[in-house]
């Protein structure tokens, strides 16, 4: 089974306005897909639909062949979708280590978690992710005190700890310094191959660093799909971007 995420004719109708309109794409296992598009193209709404935050009105989403369309968020998450938000979303009153420990639990139920210690396997995964995200110096710091970049990496780390099969990243470099953006590209490139990743991003320099295949969205629809070079020269894409100053 190589089709990780299959989105078929996905549509959401907000009282006449279709933010996502008959969108179809297939993301292969281990692929890193970037979704581009001018503001209001429906990129974030697409992520909301896939992750269960918003219910779609038509179409379907399959994850490794299983239908996850319009299931509750936590069920979709348990099926293997992990999501990173545009504004970093971590548990601000818990320490970095506790954040990762929450993400590591292989068991979602209340009663199964009425025990003091993590299973060894989960603990090992937490240690791996700590090394990968270079968060050791701040392990005992409350997440709310982290720098913006560290918070983003922690959230990424939580998705890896969670063992998400498909990771949705919504503008992972928003608000980051150059150095932080660079480090984020490194982390994402390390995840390549072992994880299937769908990224929404505006920063073209960053996209060039990580992208393999690109999907361009416009007015809720798929406009073009292909490798970087092809997309940059696509006349349809250029036209769609004219209003917002072209790809930059």
């Amino acid at each position: 089974m190589n089709e990780a995420l299959t989105i078929d004719g996905l549509t959401v109708d907000f009282g006449g306005f279709k933010a996502v309109d008959g969108f179809t794409t297939v993301v292969q296992k281990g692929e890193l897909r970037v979704i581009l598009g001018p503001n209001g193209a429906g990129k974030t709404t697409l992520m909301d639909l896939v992750s269960g935050k918003t219910a779609s009105t038509q179409g379907s989403v399959h994850l490794f062949g299983e239908n996850i369309t319009n299931r509750p968020e936590h069920i979709i998450a348990r099926h293997g979708i992990g999501r990173k938000f545009q504004i970093p979303s971590v548990f601000r009153d818990l320490t970095v280590r506790q954040n990762l420990e929450v993400a590591a639990s292989g068991e979602p139920g209340v009663f199964r978690n009425l025990r003091l210690h993590m299973v060894a396997e989960d603990r090992a995964r937490v240690e791996d992710v700590i090394a990968m995200t270079r968060l050791e110096p701040v392990l005992d710091t409350v997440a709310g005190e982290l720098s913006h970049g560290q918070m983003q990496w922690l959230e990424l780390g939580m998705l890896i700890t969670q063992q998400a099969k498909v990771i949705l990243l919504d503008e992972p470099t928003a608000g980051m310094t150059h150095a932080e953006t660079f480090r984020t590209a490194e982390i994402i490139n390390e995840m390549k191959g072992s994880h299937t990743i769908l990224v929404v991003e505006h920063d073209m320099a960053f996209v060039r660093k990580i992208a393999e295949r690109i999907t361009v969205m416009h007015m809720g629809k798929l406009l073009a799909e292909g490798p970087m070079e092809k997309i940059e020269t696509d006349p349809k894409v250029r036209e769609a971007y004219l209003g917002s100053g072209g790809i930059h």
Binding site: S51, A77, G82, Q98, V102, S105, P108, N113, L114, H117
Partner: peptide, 28 residues
């Protein structure tokens, strides 16, 4: 002090994040 207690505190801090980690927040 249990894992459930920690997860509970996470739902207090950010219920949406806890949901996206796969926890049924209401159950906790």
């Amino acid at each position: 002090s249990t894992r459930a207690g920690l997860i509970l505190q996470s739902t207090r801090d950010d219920p949406t994040r806890a949901r996206y980690l796969g926890y049924d927040v209401a159950a906790y």
